[in-house]
């Protein structure tokens, strides 16, 4: 197992190299001039050239990339053009917010998604199952910003239970995490339902019934454990997406996470911040994928990694 994990981590290095090249090119080839955005259109040519020189934009792209690579290998992600702060410090601060939001959202998503999914499958073709299908389809189709605004309108503005936006305390976390988690819960519910239905057809379910086991116990032990593989894959994928910053929801609720940082830095053509964020999102995805693969072996003993 340890050897497998080390192998996988080493395998990430070439992937990250390629991503660093792509993100570098993507950022530098996007139209838009960071210097013009920083200083406005009225700056004179002499100053412009000086700034350009100091940022190293005169050098060919491959030289700039070489410099960039050298930098990040020493752990230096540069200084933001816009805020003049260290990019890694800013990301470190915001990462915790995104992580908190992601975990809270996944918490709702898993609880609602698993319960609805399992229940719908257990009572398939009943009125509850149909209701489950209709509501999950609806939830998946609702745009997050709209759902977030509705929640805000009802629970923050009308009822005054929660703050409308901002961060800092646990109650601030509730509305944005529910907004995010709701959409994901619908996806997880649908996945769980179809996965459980598939496993219910298996012969060992009949064996368990023939032993005299209760239907509910069969579903929560025999079936669920087997159905989890597909659900874990899906959950991991969603987790990875959410870790990449919930751009829309963070904007709506003024949540100081990575998503709003990404938007700000793209608008400012803040090259160091953009590059660092893209790289970070890639690393997160790779790690989540690795965790998903490892958790397979916990669920299914037949999957063992050498």
């Amino acid at each position: 197992m340890a050897r497998y994990i080390i192998g996988r981590v080493l395998g990430m290095i070439p992937i990250l190299m390629i991503i660093s090249i792509l993100s570098f090119l993507f950022v530098h080839l996007t139209p838009g001039d960071p210097i013009r955005i920083m200083y406005g259109a009225e700056m004179d040519m002499a100053t412009y050239e000086k700034v350009k020189e100091s940022l190293g934009f005169h050098d060919p792209l491959y030289v700039q990339y070489g410099r960039y690579l050298q930098q990040i290998l020493t752990g230096d992600f540069g200084v933001s053009y816009k805020s003049k702060t260290n990019v890694s410090d800013e990301i470190g601060k915001r990462f915790l917010y995104t992580l908190g939001l992601t975990f809270a959202a996944m918490f709702w998503a898993l609880i609602i998604g698993l319960v609805v999914g399992i229940y719908s499958a257990a009572k398939r073709k009943s009125i509850w199952d149909r209701l489950g299908i209709i509501s999950t389809t609806t939830i998946i189709s609702i745009p997050e910003f709209w759902f977030g605004l509705i929640l805000m309108q009802i629970f923050a503005v009308q009822l005054g239970w929660f703050p409308t936006s901002g961060s800092g305390t646990f109650v601030h976390l509730l509305l944005p995490s529910i907004t995010l988690g709701f959409g994901v819960s619908a996806i997880i519910a649908r996945f769980t339902r179809s996965s459980v239905l598939e496993v219910l057809q298996e012969d060992f379910v009949r064996t368990a019934k023939a032993k005299g086991q209760r239907e509910s116990v069969i579903i929560w032990t025999h079936v669920l454990r087997n159905a989890l593989i597909a659900v874990i894959t899906m959950t991991g994928l969603q987790f990875g997406f959410l870790l990449g910053g919930a751009v829309v929801v963070e904007q709506v609720f003024a949540w100081p996470g990575l998503g709003s940082y990404l938007i700000d830095s793209v608008l400012a053509r803040d090259y160091p911040a953009m590059q660092a964020l893209i790289l970070l999102f890639s690393v997160q995805f790779l790690i989540v994928n690795l965790l998903v693969d490892i958790s397979y072996s916990l669920v299914n003993p037949q999957i063992r990694y050498e």
Binding site: E202, D203, F204, R206, T207, A208, A210, K211, G212, Q213, H222, R225, N226, V299, N300, P301, Q302
Partner: peptide
């Protein structure tokens, strides 16, 4: 399972793999 029990044709799939 207690008074009447049953065994099936497919031993490969009749046991829970996990």
């Amino acid at each position: 399972g207690n008074e009447i029990s049953m065994i099936f044709q497919e031993p490969m799939t009749s046991l829970n793999p996990v």
